[in-house]
Write a protein that binds this DNA or RNA. Sequence first.
DNA 1: GTCTCAGAGTTGAAAGTTCAACTAATCAGA
DNA 2: TCTGATTAGTTGAACTTTCAACTCTGAGAC
Lengths: 162, 162
Amino acid sequence: MTGSETRWLDADQQQNWRAFIVGSTLLMDTLDRELRQAHGVSMAEYEILVRLSESPDRTLRMAEIADSMQHSRSRVTHTVSRMEKAGLIRREAASGDKRGVDAVMTPEGWALLEAAAHTHVTGVREHFVDVAPRADFDAMGRVMNAVSDQLLAANPCFEDIR
Amino acid sequence: MTGSETRWLDADQQQNWRAFIVGSTLLMDTLDRELRQAHGVSMAEYEILVRLSESPDRTLRMAEIADSMQHSRSRVTHTVSRMEKAGLIRREAASGDKRGVDAVMTPEGWALLEAAAHTHVTGVREHFVDVAPRADFDAMGRVMNAVSDQLLAANPCFEDIR
DNA sequence: GTCTCAGAGTTGAAAGTTCAACTAATCAGA
DNA sequence: TCTGATTAGTTGAACTTTCAACTCTGAGAC
């Protein structure tokens, strides 16, 4: 990873990279704030609800949540604990593997998601999807997929590092 | 912001958006970890050093740092305090405005930056710039610039919210 | 001059994240 | 079937970020 001469970025690359950092923090912070103010959930919590809502029985193993969001297991434990306290999720022993824990979405969680989804999608459109031409947006998607592929390929067991 | 019917994202938009979330957290976490392991600084700290290195006298007002990074003033205060304790930055009373504080890069800070820059740029290339065709990368840059523009225009005094 | 308001930065506590150590269950192999 | 290595998840402490309250300086009105 750290070899020989440094190949510096040219001016364009530099600018694009900085645009990415600033734009993405601005975007994420805004969406997070909108969700918190309107519904009292963070974006991470919202994302967990989305994933649960898409799963059979609105249920997911802790590890599945962690892997799909690229969060550490510890982080998911803490987040789910808070959400459980708030009544949005219930923990159950996983059937089969006695080490495992299932996170199950409660009716309250579902209700919250239904309300929050509108806020979130509106924000994503207004601040992201609708501010650029479709072709550029697709290109951005290809870049970010390539980023994920590269990083996951380079680190087959990415969890170990976290 | 929250009006009438929800215009949901279509499948492509959904995928691109999720690619963005996962890819960017993966990318930022990786670059942050690389910097921490090799040089003991976070990416936020590194970015502050970069900005100082580009300023006349390697000096910047606290507020300038905060604004250019889209961080809250409080966050910059805390981060700079840690960096000052580590000897990378020195605080000085700003000339002219007695309310102001200048953050000045120390020789130790400069030395660290020189060492860390190689690691960082190599990582940015390997995990980001070089994983996608230039045209896609440029399109990504346009999208992120549009995001920033939209958000900054919508919130003339963005700091007030933070 | 002084009163009020705005701006720059700090502070400390609360909330969230990371890190390393831990328990308990499963698996693979002798 | 016993043993050692893995895997799932949790825990608590350290660290980072956020939030609201605060101090001090500067500026404009009168």
